[in-house]
Computed example of a mutant assay.
Amino acid sequence: MPGITLKLSGVSNPSLSRRLADELTTLTCSLLDKKPGQTMVMIQYVAHDEWFIDRRSLTEWGKNSFRLEVTITDETNTRLQKAAYHRAAFELLSSVIGNVHPHSNVHLIDCGAAAYGYGGLTQEYRYQHDGGPEARTAGA
């Protein structure tokens, strides 16, 4: 059940937001083996004059930037999956946004199953009551 938060430099753009919500959901579900129906995406825009890297605004840099944070349940993905996701997400966002500052970044945040969940239930509770990993691979 990934929670995806994307911060983009610039002004609100509903068309771009919809495109990126779709593409990030597809990428996240594909590379991290998650379910689209349990994937949440929030996109926020920050003005170039209010985004700073090394004490200079993006306006001064003449660049765009993004910060992608994806929360996932700890121990549900391998290091190789996470590395592949980092590369692919950076490439996707860089190509769509263009002219990105090299310090634009991707963060995968591993959350403990007992502290992370949705609908009032933790992921640990779901794991314990849905039959563990066998139930998940069977479509539970």
Results as ranks from 00 to 15, higher is better:
M1A: 13
M1R: 06
P2Q: 15
P2V: 05
P2T: 02
G3I: 12
T5H: 09
L6F: 08
L8D: 12
V11A: 10
S12W: 05
S12E: 12
S12G: 10
N13V: 01
N13L: 03
N13C: 05
S15N: 08
S15T: 14
L16I: 02
L16C: 02
R18C: 07
R19P: 00
L20M: 13
L20S: 06
A21W: 15
A21F: 13
D22H: 11
D22Q: 12
D22P: 05
E23Q: 09
E23W: 01
L24I: 07
T26V: 10
L27T: 04
S30R: 10
L31Y: 00
D33E: 13
D33R: 11
K34C: 06
K35D: 07
P36I: 03
P36T: 03
T39G: 07
T39R: 06
M40K: 06
Q44R: 14
Q44F: 08
Q44E: 14
Q44L: 13
V46K: 02
A47Y: 07
D49Y: 15
W51C: 04
F52P: 01
I53Q: 04
D54T: 15
D54P: 02
R55Q: 10
R55Y: 03
S57W: 06
W61G: 00
W61Q: 02
G62Q: 04
G62T: 00
E69Q: 13
E69T: 10
T71S: 11
T71K: 07
I72V: 12
D74L: 09
T76E: 00
T76S: 03
N77H: 03
R79K: 11
L80N: 15
K82Q: 14
A83C: 03
R87H: 04
A88F: 09
A88M: 04
A89V: 05
E91K: 05
L93P: 05
S94D: 15
S94L: 11
S94C: 09
S94R: 09
I97P: 01
I97D: 05
N99T: 03
H101D: 15
P102W: 03
P102I: 00
H103K: 10
H107N: 08
I109K: 10
A115T: 12
A115C: 14
Y118E: 07
G120L: 03
L121Y: 13
L121M: 12
Q123S: 14
R126W: 08
Q128S: 15
H129P: 00
D130V: 01
G132N: 05
E134A: 11
E134G: 13
R136C: 00
R136W: 11
A138I: 08
G139E: 00
A140R: 14
A140T: 02
